[in-house]
């Protein structure tokens, strides 16, 4: 089937959101295709779990649909707003993980072929990272994940978290240090003694 030319090409996210709020159903589909991959990726990196990340992604997008009628185009970028919402939803989930899951509870590779074992080790590393993030104070976890998992700049993070750049620097430094301490005892388990597992 030939795709018709995209009438929304080049339209800013905020304009599409306003179109959606005005009753344009197609705008929602375009926004979903544009935004959902990044939302899902952010949630996956923070949570280390596909199922949880999908739930968070759906929840974040639902919040976007609900706020659409009140969206003020001059206030914030949709992407900035979504980074904030996803970070908050993820730290909500990480907070619930605290105390429920100890750092020893990591998915262990079962009987598996080497390539599958490598994949499972990557999964184990991501789970371990996420569990370590869960041990941090919420703001530290958010700042560290936005800086080191999303690769955003400190001014971008400052805007997302609505704090000063200096505060971002402080949060990321302390958060990273705490993460390093939390992960220190798990090097062998996560395959960091030898560079890569067999």
């Amino acid at each position: 089937m030939n795709a018709s030319p995209d009438p929304y090409a080049g339209a800013p996210d905020a304009a599409l959101l306003v179109a959606y709020a005005s009753g344009d159903g197609q705008a929602a589909r375009i926004l979903t295709m544009r935004l959902l991959p990044r939302v899902l990726a952010q949630a996956t990196r923070m949570l280390g779990s596909q199922t949880e990340a999908e739930d968070v992604a759906q929840d974040a997008m639902m919040r976007l649909w609900k706020i659409a009628p009140d969206w003020r185009q001059d206030e914030a970028q949709v992407s900035t707003w979504l980074y904030r919402v996803v970070a908050n939803l993820c730290t909500d989930r990480l907070r619930k993980r605290r105390g429920v899951m100890s750092l020893d509870q990591v998915a262990e590779p079962l009987d598996a072929a080497p390539s599958v074992a490598a994949q499972m080790q990557t999964q184990a590393r991501m789970t371990a990272l996420s569990d370590a993030l869960a041990q941090l104070p919420d703001r530290q976890a958010q700042a560290v994940s936005l800086r080191h998992l999303e690769g955003l700049t400190n001014p971008e993070i400052a805007q997302i978290m609505d704090i000063s750049v200096r505060s971002v620097e402080s949060l990321t430094a302390r958060g990273k240090r705490a993460l390093a301490d939390l992960m220190a005892g798990r090097k062998a388990e996560l395959g960091y003694d030898d560079d890569e597992p067999e």
């Binding site: 959902l36 991959p37 899902l40 990726a41 996956t44 990196r45 596909q50 990340a53 999908e54 992604a57 990557t122 590393r125 991501m126 371990a128 990272l129 080191h148 998992l149 999303e150 690769g151 992960m183």
Partner: peptide, 12 residues
Amino acid sequence: LFADARGLTPAP
């Protein structure tokens, strides 16, 4: 670990 995480780009 951070680099591994950044490499995760799951398709919805």
